[in-house]
């Protein structure tokens, strides 16, 4: 990899480690390989969102042309958010595409992603199903997103929704994969009949 990319990632890595946000456990990075081409990021679910208390892992790939082109980032932790694919974890965020600027760093990217969790942009969606639910039934979206955070991001289960757990368990007992059952239920307003139909087809 180009020298400038390695030198920069080393510095940015230090910047994140020394940052205030890292001290408060809001953001974190880990190295995956020796040549600094891949990193693992982690952001905390922001307070007063359905993601509160959750930990979201990110895959960060540094391109050869970094910092002139943005890093490739996606969510490894499954998440229910209008701008993040519930299937692949792909992120729709302008600064990771055409609004990237060479002065941005790992720290600012992680903080921007955290901000994205607080403020979704349903009009520029990555996951159309989630975005539709966000716009049409915000309350259900919030409950679903919280349920996903509890299921996949270790969010505390203090506001656990027993109804959702029961429905997933029912489908799991019928022999469906737990994650597939949860996805089908989330996409069909937690309607058992329609979710089952979706799973069979």
């Amino acid at each position: 990899m180009a020298n400038i990319a390695v030198a920069r990632i080393k510095r940015e890595f230090r910047e994140v480690v020394k940052s205030e946000e890292a001290a408060k456990c809001n953001i974190r990075v880990e190295l995956i390989d020796d040549n600094f081409t891949e990193l693992r990021g982690e952001i905390a679910g922001p307070p007063e969102t359905p993601y509160e208390g959750g930990k979201f892992l990110l895959e960060i790939k540094i391109p050869e042309t970094y910092p002139f082109n943005p890093p490739k980032v996606k969510f490894m932790t499954k998440i229910w958010h209008p701008n993040i694919s519930s299937v692949t974890g792909a992120i729709c965020l302008d600064i990771l595409k055409d609004q990237w600027a060479a002065a941005m760093t790992l720290r600012t990217v992680l903080l921007s992603l955290q901000a994205l969790l607080s403020a979704a942009e349903p009009d520029d969606p990555q996951d159309a199903v989630v975005a539709k639910q966000y716009k049409e039934n915000r309350h259900l979206w919030e409950k679903t997103a919280r349920h996903w955070a509890q299921e996949y991001a270790e969010a505390p289960k203090s506001k656990k929704d027993d109804e959702f757990y029961d429905k997933v368990s029912q489908l799991a007992e019928m022999g469906f994969d737990r994650h597939k059952a949860l996805t089908a239920l989330s996409a069909h307003e937690w309607n058992m009949e329609r979710a089952t139909q979706d799973l069979i087809s």
């Binding site: 080393k10 230090r14 480690v17 974190r28 990075v29 880990e30 190295l31 995956i32």
Partner: peptide
């Protein structure tokens, strides 16, 4: 390589 960076060890500078 996997380095936990929440510690204070990595890259302490002046």
């Amino acid at each position: 390589m996997s380095a936990d960076v929440t510690g204070d060890g990595a890259g302490a500078e002046g």
